[in-house]
Computed example of a mutant assay.
Amino acid sequence: MRNMTGLVHNEWLKLTKKKSFWVSPGLLAALTVLVTVMLYRFSANVAGIESGIAYAAGMLGASGTGQFVTVLSVVATAGIVAQEYAQGTIKFLLIRSRSRGEILVSKYLAVVLYILMMTVISFAVLFIAGGVTFGFGGTGEQWIEALKQGAYGFIYSLVYASLAFMVGVLTRSSGVSIGAGLIGTMFGAIVIQKDFYKYVLLPNADLSVYGTSGPPLPGMTVGFSLTVSAVYVALFLLAGYTVFRRRDIA
């Protein structure tokens, strides 16, 4: 456990040392404030919002700032494996007394931590911007709903970041991995009215729809979508691990 903690810490340090590390969080905060100002000034849909936490609950999903979190997280972390190949540093990682599985898991956990950081930043900025605009009141139910929507947004981002992570391992290309993650978010809202489509990843990744428009297809529930998403993420990680473990680095 201590070894894994050290590996994750090292991977996190690699991310933080990049000059572009704070670009995504800064851009996320700026976009969130801009959207809040635009909605307040030009949209009638915010008329019934009672507090900053209620505003955050309504904006944390994939149809709101959750989409920003996903896109920015994919762009920032999708190449975490591919860049090691491009820079030639993958050989130095593998000659140390660490298994390939430990190295890959530590990189994935760093991605998870980055998404969590972005989700927390989105939550905080939405609450503050919403509080300044609509007031800092709020009920316990609104807080619970906001936390639930934040969790849904985190899962949505994690699904597509996991897809990009796998593609990065398979192709060793940052551009292809970023493209795969972004294409997934672009087509995620498409729903094909066929029974088989409920087993496809795309309509299951965004859990926030269950509180707004309802199930994408008959028979789908939050639990069903969580299970389908978990299966796909597990398959992504298994495919990435299998290829990474067997690939010749020389």
Results as ranks from 00 to 15, higher is better:
91 K>G: 04
71 V>A: 07
148 K>N: 04
12 W>A: 03
86 A>C: 09
41 R>N: 08
237 L>V: 12
187 F>H: 05
89 T>L: 14
148 K>Y: 04
28 L>E: 06
154 F>H: 11
114 Y>Q: 07
192 I>V: 15
6 G>L: 01
10 N>K: 06
72 L>Y: 06
31 L>Y: 12
214 G>E: 09
89 T>D: 13
151 A>L: 15
136 F>V: 05
171 T>P: 00
108 Y>Q: 02
11 E>Y: 09
198 K>Q: 01
59 M>D: 06
92 F>W: 11
88 G>A: 13
93 L>A: 12
197 Y>R: 05
158 L>E: 00
130 G>H: 02
138 G>C: 08
224 F>H: 11
161 A>D: 02
98 R>M: 15
235 L>Q: 12
38 M>S: 10
83 Q>Y: 07
131 G>L: 15
14 K>S: 10
12 W>N: 00
246 R>C: 04
188 G>M: 08
60 L>A: 07
210 Y>F: 15
20 S>H: 00
151 A>S: 11
69 V>A: 02
12 W>C: 08
141 E>I: 13
200 V>G: 05
182 L>Y: 03
207 L>E: 04
6 G>M: 06
183 I>E: 05
77 T>Q: 10
239 A>Q: 03
173 S>N: 02
41 R>I: 13
189 A>Y: 04
87 Q>C: 07
115 I>E: 03
69 V>R: 01
243 V>F: 10
137 G>T: 07
154 F>N: 07
215 P>F: 12
24 S>N: 01
64 G>E: 01
201 L>Q: 11
193 Q>D: 14
55 Y>E: 11
119 T>L: 10
231 V>G: 03
85 Y>D: 05
86 A>T: 12
8 V>K: 10
210 Y>H: 06
197 Y>L: 04
166 M>T: 14
51 S>V: 00
61 G>N: 06
70 T>E: 08
140 G>M: 10
229 S>Q: 09
45 N>F: 15
114 Y>A: 13
18 K>G: 03
217 L>A: 07
198 K>P: 02
171 T>N: 03
18 K>C: 02
197 Y>P: 02
208 S>L: 02
139 T>S: 12
